[in-house]
Amino acid sequence: MTGRPPPFKRSPSRSAPQRRRGERPAGRPFGEWPEDVAILYGWHSVAEALRNPQRRIRRLLATENAAKRLVEEGIEPSPAAEIVRPGEIDRLLEPDAVHQGIYAEADALPSPSLKQASKSDLILVLDQITDPHNVGAIVRSAAALAVGAIVTTARHSPAATGVLAKSASGGLEHVPFCFVPNLARALDELKSLGVLVVGLDSEGPADLLDTPLRAPLALVLGAEGKGLRQLTRQTCDVLARIDLPGKIVSLNVSNAAVLALHAARRAISKPQ
C-alpha cells in the first residue's frame, strides 16, 4: 500500500450515534441524519456507490470482514472506512435491516432534467408508487434493462435512501431519478420532446406485446391497487395491458415493471 492511505481506519466505539429507546425522528425510517444525506447499507448498495464517481461518500462504517472484502475487490473508499462492530451499525438502522457489515452516508445523486431524460431510448415513469421495497425492486430491474431515467414526483414517492437503496441492490447508481412537481405536465413535456408515452393499465385496449412501440419510449406504471390516476391515464399517448395466461391475472407492481421493461426493450431494439 505504498504511497496510498489505508482503505480503513479504526473507530472508537462511540462513533455510532446513540438514540434513546423508542425515539424516532418524524418522517425518517432510520436514525438521525441531515435531510440531504442518503443512507446506504448492504454490500451491493454501498459497493456500487463507492464505485460510482458521481456519488460523494460522507461517512463509511464497515466491520473488519466487510473492510477486508473491499480490499479483496479492489475498492479504495474515500473517505476511509471506520472499522466498527456490527452492533454499532445495528444501532443506526431498523431492527430488521440486513446491513452485511457496511453502512454509508452519502450525498444524493444529481437529478437530470426532463430534456436530458428524453435523450434516453427507454424511460420509466412512476405514478405515486410509495412502497420503498417495490420502488427499490423496480430500480434494480430498470438498471438491468438499461433504463435511462426514472421520472416521478418528489411528493408521494419514497426517498432514494434506506430500504429503497437496499432493495435496489446498487441500481440507484445506474438509473437517475428525475423528480418533477407535476406528473401530467411532465408527460406532456416528454411528448413534446418526441417521447412515446405508454401507460400500463389493466383496461388497456391491447396487450403490450401487440402495441406498436418505438424509441424514445416512456412506460408509465401506477400504484399497486389504484393503478394510474385518471389525469395520468388521459395524458398518455396510448394504454396497454399485460395479459397473463394463469389463474392469477394480476402482478405485484415490481413484477409487472420487469415484464413491461423487458417487452419494451426487445421491441425498441428491433430494426424498424
Rank of each mutant, 00 (worst) to 15 (best):
A186V: 00
L213S: 09
K68W: 11
A143D: 05
A260W: 06
G199R: 04
R265P: 11
A264N: 02
R20N: 09
P181R: 05
D243Q: 13
R140L: 06
G171W: 14
I123D: 04
E88D: 10
P25M: 12
Q116K: 07
V139C: 12
G3P: 01
P6F: 02
G27K: 12
P212E: 02
R51E: 05
F30Q: 04
E32C: 09
S45L: 08
I89R: 13
P216E: 08
P212T: 00
I129S: 07
I268W: 14
G171F: 09
G3M: 04
V37P: 07
P29A: 04
D107W: 12
A215Y: 13
G194L: 00
P29L: 00
D107H: 07
V180D: 13
P12H: 06
A206Q: 09
R155H: 09
A218T: 02
S118P: 01
A160Q: 14
A223E: 04
P110C: 12
L70H: 15
A218M: 08
S202D: 00
R20L: 10
K270T: 11
P132M: 02
I268N: 08
R19P: 03
G3A: 03
P86V: 10
V125M: 07
L50T: 12
A146H: 14
L183G: 00
A257Q: 09
P86K: 10
R10G: 09
L228Y: 10
D90C: 01
I75S: 14
R21T: 15
V151I: 05
D243V: 15
D121L: 13
L187N: 09
A142D: 12
V249G: 13
L190G: 05
G162I: 08
Q234L: 12
R69I: 13
G222V: 10
D210W: 00
N65G: 07
H44V: 06
D131F: 03
A146W: 13
V175L: 02
S45T: 14
D131W: 12
E48S: 05
R51Y: 05
P17S: 11
L126F: 09
L208G: 15
R51V: 02
V163P: 06
I57W: 03
A144G: 15
H174G: 00
V220T: 06
L92P: 01
A49G: 14
L244S: 01
L145A: 12
S15P: 02
A16K: 03
S202H: 03
P7W: 04
P112D: 15
P95L: 01
S113V: 07
Y103Q: 06
D96H: 10
L208E: 11
I242N: 10
K115W: 07
S45R: 02
Q18H: 14
R185E: 07
I123T: 05
P34L: 13
E189V: 06
K119T: 06
L164S: 05
L92R: 11
P176L: 09
L122K: 05
S269Y: 10
K119N: 01
I89C: 01
E203L: 14
A80I: 12
G194K: 01
